[in-house]
Design a protein around this nucleic acid. Structure first.
Lengths: 259, 259
DNA sequence: TCTCCCTATTTACTCCGACATATTATGTGC
DNA sequence: GCACATAATATGTCGGAGTAAATAGGGAGA
């Protein structure tokens, strides 16, 4: 049975195989997110900038359209193309999140995402406990089994983890929740990835996942929310120590929780 | 130094003054969201489609880049441009939300948004109660006063309502929450707008807003969340009756709450 | 001196035609 | 029947020409 196959070539936006305009959008996007171009700045004119990047105006313009679509810039004749104020950026767009985490992610923004995750994920588990059906539970169970076989340090293990959480989202029967949670999860995993150096995981995550599963299977909404809350805290703990390793030399107030 | 200038003519994405490629993106976007083009469908080739729309290939391509940026379609040489599966759409993108509500919005999706709002808004009020400062409170107070002067049936009144909720979001000190809530709020207001026919508001909304303000001012997180919860329920009630007026002839199970 | 309107210029926007590249489909030889 | 080379096709990239819009600047009038 040739499983998956589905998620085989779905990475059109990654790697060097990206199209030219996509590469330009990526570069400009990361430059904007990293602060190289600040809100209010006007980019050099199309002709000048395209020439500087050694690309045609068409490719450059298509890249600008992408950035415009994500709320990063706006163009007007005579006035030029300028970076919009931060509150108009589509910060939850998967690409924008990716660009935000391409460099050294802003610690304040990471905190924002974790806070949002701590709000959304338990609520999602609550809905899942209310609405899941047999198929949902089977998918979760299979994913859990796969997680037990491979550890979270392997690709297969992380894939199983994703499957488990995706099954929960599917069970919520809520598209908006699905999209949102998937975006945040992917972004957070970006941060988790850059800390994948040897440091061992703090503790075996399987039992916590099992608790979530049991609560959802039992249809216990409160227990599901609480169990998911534990999982989110665990991930936060994980990321916190990783970030501390990176740039927090000694005991200063924790930037992720403010304590 | 001439200040402001910034937010003067910021409505580039609306009205007939939109650029050509923006108009094409709008048309194709609404066609996709409305189901005219289903996931998996391949669009006619660039040349053919551009000719059919009576526009140049460049303009058509730029529109496609916009849709691609929002996860609605993907293009590959030889294979053509095809509509992506719904789970890859950036449903929380402001434009996509606008396109979704351009026609008759899917009732299931509206339910999703309200459920998400019921999760996010009370949590936002909770954060606001914890982190607001004097300026935040003053902005809220001013907005409340303006709401009292004009009713919600006027433009000025609705603007004051927006200001009030924006002040709460600002007080959360959480960018992700701000962006998300602003998107959802705008979308929900889209639905509220199409029901703006004479039907009087069910009850005076001012006292409920005051309760939210008082709780935030007092720093009482639980009370703030609860008061905001009441507000969301009120909005849901509002939208429900509007939708019932539209397409639910008699007593069938409520699509928005499932009861 | 100030205000208003008109003009000029700058810039993005649109169009066109050609060529390059990537991917699928075809066909050929083994 | 399979592997590899080949061709066909659609998207991708390019360069240039002309259009439309918005700002800045100057001039007429008060």
């Amino acid at each position: 049975m040739k499983v998956d196959e589905t998620s085989r070539k779905t990475d059109e936006t990654r790697g060097p195989g990206r199209r030219l305009h996509g590469a330009i959008a990526h570069r400009l996007g990361t430059d904007i997110l990293s602060g190289k171009y600040a809100p209010g700045d006007v980019l050099s004119g199309e002709v000048a900038f395209a020439e500087e990047l050694k690309v045609s105006r068409s490719a450059y313009r298509e890249a600008i359209q992408v950035l415009t679509a994500k709320g990063l810039v706006a163009s007007r004749p005579k006035a030029g193309t300028r970076v919009l104020p931060r509150e108009r950026w589509n910060l939850l767009d998967p690409d924008v999140l990716g660009w935000a985490f391409a460099g050294e992610p802003d610690i304040e923004f990471v905190r924002s995402l974790f806070e949002l995750r701590a709000i959304v994920e338990p609520a999602a588990a609550r809905f899942a406990a209310r609405r899941r059906d047999k198929d949902d539970l089977k998918t979760m169970k299979d994913a859990l089994a796969a997680m037990r076989r491979h550890t979270l340090t392997t690709d297969a293990g992380r894939a199983a983890d994703r499957d488990f959480h995706n099954a929960i989202l599917t069970a919520t029967r809520n598209d908006a929740l699905m999209v949102l949670s998937a975006s945040i999860g992917a972004a957070v995993n970006w941060t988790t990835q850059f800390k994948q150096r040897a440091r061992a995981l703090p503790r075996n995550p399987i039992p916590d996942h099992v608790r979530v599963y049991d609560a959802i299977a039992a249809g216990d909404e409160n227990a599901a929310a609480e169990a998911m809350n534990v999982l989110v805290d665990l991930a936060l703990e994980d990321t916190r120590s990783a970030i501390e390793d990176r740039d927090a030399p000694q005991g200063q107030p924790d930037a992720l929780t403010g304590e």
